[in-house]
Amino acid sequence: MTVEAPVAPDEETPLEAQSAVEAPADAAPSSGTLAARSLAGLGLADPEAPADPEAPAEPVIGVRQLACGIIEVALPPNQEIEGPEARVAGAAVRALADGRRLPVLLVISGAVGVSVEARQVYAGSIAASAVAIVGETPVDRVIAHYLLRSKSDTIPAEFFRSRTEALEWLRPYTSEK
């Protein structure tokens, strides 16, 4: 499953914005996994839906769970990632993890930058058992350096130039609970 997570106009995550609009004040929180809920109900974009040509382009972070149990997060090329986008992607990762700690493959190839707020979201991850950052360019390496410096000391993290090597490094972390 691929989840594309755009940011709501008011900088709330779409999850927060959707629940604030639809849920009555006395309603109990809904349960279930991300797979059981519709993307529209989460306020996340449907990757199969046609794009609105008049809508302003928003950075979209791709989030999906690979068959091997690793969660892949792909930053959009030629964009700077800000806090709101990072929070939406973090919410999607937590929903896919469903209370477990899973390895995360973070693909930053071509990203222009990651804001301080977005780095704080990354550093505060509670769903990751390990993080492999994949990049190709010297700029990617600099971004990865800042991400690695801001990470928690309890979560192993490494930078790789090869997606294959990164996935191989993450494989032992797929069995953590």
Rank of each mutant, 00 (worst) to 15 (best):
M1V: 03
E4M: 14
E4F: 01
E4R: 14
P6C: 10
P6R: 05
V7I: 10
A8T: 04
P9I: 00
P9V: 01
P9S: 14
E11L: 12
E11G: 03
E12V: 00
T13P: 15
L15Y: 11
E16I: 05
E16N: 08
A17T: 06
Q18R: 13
S19M: 14
A20N: 04
V21H: 04
A23Q: 09
P24H: 11
P24I: 09
A27T: 02
A28D: 11
A28Q: 12
S30T: 04
S30I: 09
S30P: 11
S31W: 07
S31L: 00
G32H: 03
L34T: 01
A35M: 12
A35K: 02
A36E: 14
R37G: 01
R37P: 03
L39A: 06
L42G: 09
A45D: 15
A45P: 11
P47C: 13
E48D: 12
P50H: 01
D52P: 02
A55C: 11
P56A: 14
P56G: 05
E58C: 07
E58N: 10
I61N: 03
I61P: 04
G62L: 08
V63D: 03
Q65P: 00
Q65I: 05
I70F: 10
A74H: 02
Q79D: 12
E80I: 06
E80Q: 02
E82L: 11
E85N: 10
E85T: 03
V88R: 14
A89Q: 06
G90H: 10
A91V: 04
A92H: 09
R94H: 02
A95G: 14
L96I: 10
G99Y: 03
G99S: 15
R101L: 06
L102E: 02
P103Q: 09
V104P: 08
V104T: 10
I108S: 05
I108M: 02
I108R: 01
S109A: 15
A111S: 11
A111H: 02
V112E: 06
G113H: 03
G113M: 07
V114N: 04
S115M: 10
V116A: 12
E117L: 11
R119F: 10
Q120A: 15
V121S: 07
G124L: 14
G124A: 05
S125C: 08
S125Y: 05
I126W: 04
I126N: 09
A127V: 13
A127T: 02
S129Q: 10
V131M: 11
V131D: 01
A132M: 15
A132K: 01
E136I: 11
P138S: 12
V139P: 02
V142L: 13
I143R: 00
A144N: 00
A144E: 02
Y146H: 13
Y146V: 04
L147G: 02
L148T: 08
L148M: 14
K151A: 13
D153H: 04
D153V: 05
D153E: 01
T154P: 06
I155Q: 05
P156E: 09
P156M: 13
E158K: 11
E158H: 14
F159H: 06
F160G: 00
F160H: 04
F160A: 00
S162R: 09
S162E: 15
R163F: 00
E165K: 07
A166W: 05
W169R: 05
W169C: 11
L170Y: 07
L170G: 07
R171C: 10
R171N: 11
P172H: 08
Y173P: 08
T174G: 08
S175V: 12
S175N: 12
